[in-house]
Write a protein that binds this DNA or RNA. Structure first.
Lengths: 281, 281
DNA sequence: CGAGCTCTTGAAGTCGCTCAAAAGCGGTGG
DNA sequence: CCACCGCTTTTGAGCGACTTCAAGAGCTCG
């Protein structure tokens, strides 16, 4: 989901590609919101206080002292997940949530009958695994769409720390809540929209999430296949391809394999307006 | 969602119909798990410690002292919502979550273009409004499917109390997490299943939730219309009706308007097995 | 450079939708 | 008590959007 490839990450002192990405964009507001200090990773330990994602991720809006509490109280380690590998499988024991640091993921739910559904794509700053708190087992699988790194946040520690730091508690609740409302939006797409509307909404949502993170708001590199997009949206890969082709030929977006550029933002919004109301209770 | 109609609720001392329902069922395990003390409602104040839903609702597994903390710390009032009325509308200010005490609700998300999607049905013990924590505004509307009553749980107080009572915190997180995984299951239905599979899954899920609450596990009275079921499952009301008719004629379930009885549980499960895998990533 | 993906595009098929009409149910009032 | 009205539900017939099947083109990476 970055347009800059992830390079130079030593085990000792990983440097976040986000920095380079931000510098290359015009979005100076998002740029200012982030700090550029190096991540201290003594033996793969990471500290929220020095992470440049901290204003996108879990510890949003914490004071210096509160961040210190987080550093002290939360034993957080960094974990690498190669492209295509699972961060965790469905049904395995839940004992930590994961914050995406670099790269991106898909989460997949599978029915007893073998039906498969992608429930979402996660990028840097997103939390993964919240659905496992209830039963103590992960109800989805999480798979890396590219070589990725995550912060491992032990849930037991998080429980304790959120009791100690109200601002952290508030934001943790916010992130769980956001997951819920995001899911509702996806259900809206799945339940009543035409193929074109689903794709348009998907693209707009993706661009928006990238914009918030300081990336370009007009072009992006998809990290997922047509089939994966289809699985999220309840469409077949051929349908996804056809719709993208149509949007390309009508001059709404420029599609070049996985490189997408929005050429006519108004037209993209009008794809949604044009769609008839299919469900009114 | 009860098969016994809700009667005799005075403003002073409402008696929960759940008690009557439980007594009429054979599920003695669920019956034992609940206490039958009267609800003290001095001026419409309610106390978790004396509520017979407390082992289904928010304060699960709390000790007597912890319950006392909840009673003292959480100013909870009871609110009546007539059939068809909104508990809250989308976009309105969020300052409390609601626990369904009697009756049932639907939650509805609406797109800017007017598309409408039901995101879930809630029955006694379920929490409503969790999606509003993130932005401070409700992202869905909640509408009563029948005359209902909810416990109003101010969110500010809940934040404080969950920091004080770890067991309450744990269970609150569990309920948020459950909402997430429930949504994922719905997305699985919406994304890849055939109409028959969606209906079968819906019925099985509904029966399961009723069973947990001590109701009969073989017959129920639907509180929602065919159109509302269709909205949840991404189907038209005619399709819902047709599928129910087919299941009826094939002897899987007995459908009589909104009265549903499962006559062949195995066959209902086989509706799912028979469905071909339509999505494999 | 070639094997294995992913993606595109076409043609035929199908499941669920749309449109339509009638029946059933519940409530109201003469 | 029964006729009437509005709403929900059922059922039929035809249609359309998306899927399925199929073949070929384009990437990617060892």
């Amino acid at each position: 989901m970055h347009q800059v490839s992830t390079k130079r990450q030593t085990a000792e002192r990983p440097v976040h590609p986000f920095v380079a990405d931000l510098r290359s964009t015009a979005d100076s507001a998002a740029l200012k919101a982030l700090t550029f200090s190096r991540l201290r990773t003594g033996a793969c330990k990471v500290h929220c206080s020095s992470c440049r994602l901290r204003e996108v991720c879990l510890p949003v809006g914490l004071t210096r002292e509160q961040l210190q509490d987080v550093d002290d109280g939360l034993v957080t380690s960094l974990r690498k997940v190669p492209k295509g590998a699972a961060l965790f499988h469905a049904g395995t024991c839940f004992d930590a949530v994961f914050a995406v640091w670099t790269g991106s993921f898909k989460t997949i739910v599978t029915s007893n009958q073998g039906n498969v559904q992608i429930t979402g794509f996660q990028m840097c700053g997103d939390l993964i695994g919240l659905g496992g708190i209830d039963t103590g087992r992960h109800e989805v699988a999480a798979v890396a769409l590219e070589d990725s790194q995550v912060c491992v946040i032990p849930y037991a520690g998080l429980e304790i720390l959120t009791r100690k730091v109200p601002a952290l508690q508030k934001h943790f609740h916010r992130l769980m809540s956001r997951e819920i409302s995001t899911n509702h939006q996806t259900m809206l797409q799945l339940g009543g929209m035409h193929a074109e509307e689903r794709i348009a909404t998907f693209l707009l949502d993706l661009f928006d999430r990238l914009r918030v993170r300081g990336f370009s708001s007009s072009s992006m590199l998809l990290r997922m296949s047509r089939e994966e997009i289809g699985s999220l949206l309840g469409l077949k890969l051929e349908t996804v391809s056809r719709v993208l082709s149509k949007l390309h030929t009508t001059g709404v977006v420029s599609v070049n394999q996985r490189h997408i550029e929005i050429t006519d933002m108004n037209a993209l919004h009008q794809v949604l307006e044009g769609g008839a109301v299919r469900n009114d209770i």
